[in-house]
Design a binder for these strands. Structure first.
Ligand code: FES
Ligand code: FES
Lengths: 176, 176
DNA sequence: ATAACGCGGACTGTATTGATCCCCGTTACG
DNA sequence: CGTAACGGGGATCAATACAGTCCGCGTTAT
């Protein structure tokens, strides 16, 4: 079966960090290094979330990304659509019209409307999308808050602070 | 989003013809020419249905394929799985374990069980598969029987008879 | 014996995906 | 005002998967 690409996994995990460390704008490089994924590749993903209105981008030095809405108002479906576009799960090639019995002009009963087989696929896609629409980023963030120890959130803060200091405070020294 | 490949469309349309023209074994070449699709490519698809126990193959001259079960006992899910294998909709790369905060050994609360994001995807896949499992080839065949004019079925029979005659009766003449 | 079958492997071309690099406009900070 | 950190977009590349072809083998009715 087809795939929801890794880009979506990267995107949602980034959004989860943004949801947890609210307020503070995180740069794409921060998010990449923090999660051990390719910075240049992540830099191609985040603009998609921005164009979809899921995150807000702040340009220039000290810039970065913030959630554009409360996490509870960001559904998984919106994220997946923002990253993957609107490619359908099943892409019907209308083979029913090529039947040898009716040469080049298939009768209306065979070519009108949606092929019954195609309809089944559309229904399956609809079920999948409905399932994705039910879950919000806020749900996952809450679940994460429950399982992660409080100490962990302090470590996140420390890490981010350290990054900020390295980048701005001591900008002349490129290496820590 | 990802795709259910064209092979599935070919496969299901072939199965539909097999369901309609019951009894008679149709060869892969018959099915391909009948639907205007590549014979060599279809010849790669049908064995998958055979290995999955959906169709039965009869080798040798006058051979071909038949449904191995009544059409009502063949679900769309079984067909899709037979063609596409068992590739998951979403293939988790476990990015959660790469977090910079816990170097090489992520704590158990972060790596145990299934990632909450992954779980959402699994649930969506489950919803899609459940939707596909609800529809059977028999349902579609019945729907087809309702919209197709009775005359059409006679034409199918004629066409098949003609093919049989060309292939076996006058085997010495390769062209019609 | 022949020719129509199914079966499988090797092979090609193209599209997509993951990933890198470079350059540009913008913005804070010194 | 200059610099360096930002985001954004285009060009490029390697790996993979998919659609489609070709060839050869074993099987079986006629
Ligand atoms: S023609 Fe595409 S599914 Fe029937
Ligand atoms: S680690 Fe794969 S979805 Fe979270």
């Amino acid at each position: 079966m087809a795939h929801i690409t890794v880009s979506v996994e990267y995107a949602i995990h980034c959004l989860l960090w943004l949801a947890i460390s609210d307020d503070r704008a995180l740069s794409s490089r921060d998010l990449a290094e923090f999660q051990g994924i390719s910075p240049t590749f992540l830099a191609k993903i985040l603009p998609k979330l921005e164009k979809a209105g899921i995150v807000g981008a702040h340009e220039g030095v000290r810039g970065g990304y913030r959630l554009a809405r409360p996490a509870s108002q960001i559904s998984f479906l919106q994220i997946v659509d923002a990253i993957e576009g609107e490619k359908p799960l099943f892409d019907c090639q209308e083979v029913r019209r090529r039947c040898a019995l009716y040469g080049d002009c298939p009768p209306k009963w065979a070519s009108g409307g949606v092929c019954a087989i195609h309809a089944v696929m559309l229904q399956a896609e609809k079920a999948m999308r409905a399932s994705l629409a039910l879950q919000s980023l806020g749900d996952i963030a809450m679940r994460f808050n429950r399982i992660a120890p409080a100490k962990f959130f302090d470590e996140i803060d420390e890490w981010v602070d350290e990054r900020m200091a390295i980048r701005t405070g001591r900008s002349g020294k490129p290496e820590a």
